[in-house]
């Protein structure tokens, strides 16, 4: 029951979705399964929030190092949750004006909108913006033309970095561009192709395409084999150790 039922559920659902792709009669089975999947995805958010609360409450109650930050997490969590679930500061939908809960949960001016606009947005975007600094530092510390492979990587990065800005025009703008109306000659195309912005296009559309396509094919085969293992019950790692 503890291990067999989950295996059966995984296999049944998986095969229903596969079958529903090919047999129109079973299309609605696949749709229903996916809606259930989507509902569970929403419930997973609740699980995630609950877990975060549980862990941080424990940390605060045990006064573990850094518990004050856990207290901040809990406060931020509870305030956001309360104003969001209660739709604090939202106006009802104009059509259903007599239903106070009918409004947009994140309408402009609501408390949840304020939290998003002035806390979540600046904080998350700044965290990612910081990577500009770290990427510069990493470029300075780690990129060395030690061998052929590293040199290729560096050379490509140089061309792309320069080719995707106005530096391309400044550095290689003197090379002739292809005339639209004339038949492009072999050398005409060659000189045009050496312009940095064109070299970048070639790198992206030929070399990067080839490498990415091979990676995609490899990943697809990996996903297919992993999926089959799960559906056939060969891979049971998601069931855990079975100690509980």
């Amino acid at each position: 029951m503890k291990r067999t039922a989950p295996l059966l559920i995984a296999a049944t659902v998986g095969f229903i979705i596969i079958v529903s792709t090919f047999i129109p009669y079973t299309e609605s089975w696949g749709e229903d399964s996916m809606i259930w999947f989507d509902i569970l995805a929403a419930v997973a958010f609740v699980l995630g929030g609950g877990n975060l609360l549980k862990m941080n409450l424990k940390k605060v109650s045990e006064r573990r190092p850094g518990w004050a930050y856990s207290a901040i997490i809990i406060a931020a969590f509870l305030i956001t949750l309360t104003v969001g679930l209660l739709k604090v500061g939202t106006h009802p939908n104009e059509v259903f004006w007599n239903k106070p809960w009918s409004g947009d949960y994140i309408g402009e001016g609501s408390a949840l909108w304020w939290i998003y606009e002035y806390l979540i947005y600046p904080l998350t975007s700044t965290m990612f913006a910081m990577l500009a600094f770290y990427i510069a530092s990493a470029a300075f510390r780690a990129f060395r033309a030690k061998n052929m492979e590293a040199s290729l990587l560096l050379g490509t990065a140089f061309i792309v970095l320069l080719g995707r800005t106005y530096a391309a025009i400044i550095l290689t703008g003197w090379l002739p561009e292809l005339a639209h109306d004339a038949e492009p000659s072999f050398f005409g195309q060659l000189w045009n192709g050496l312009r940095l912005e064109k070299l970048t296009e070639t790198i992206m559309g030929v070399f990067n395409l080839a490498g990415s396509r091979a990676i995609n094919i490899g990943i697809a085969l990996g996903i297919a084999s992993t999926s089959l293992k799960v559906l056939l019950g060969i891979d049971r790692s998601y069931l855990g150790t079975g100690e509980d």
């Binding site: 809606i35 989507d38 509902i39 995805a41 929403a42 419930v43 997973a44 958010f45 609740v46 995630g48 929030g49 975060l52 850094g66 930050y69 856990s70 901040i72 997490i73 809990i74 406060a75 931020a76 969590f77 509870l78 305030i79 956001t80 949750l81 969001g84 679930l85 949960y105 994140i106 949840l112 939290i115 998003y116 806390l119 979540i120 904080l123 998350t124 965290m127």
Partner: peptide
């Protein structure tokens, strides 16, 4: 660390709220 704690707590609750109003209520 304070800023980081705020974003962790607020984001987790934001996801819960959005999951509740967009899926749990209308579709479940």
């Amino acid at each position: 660390k304070t800023a980081e704690s705020i974003v962790v707590g607020a984001s987790a609750a934001y996801l819960m709220v959005i999951g509740f109003w967009t899926q749990i209520i209308p579709n479940l």
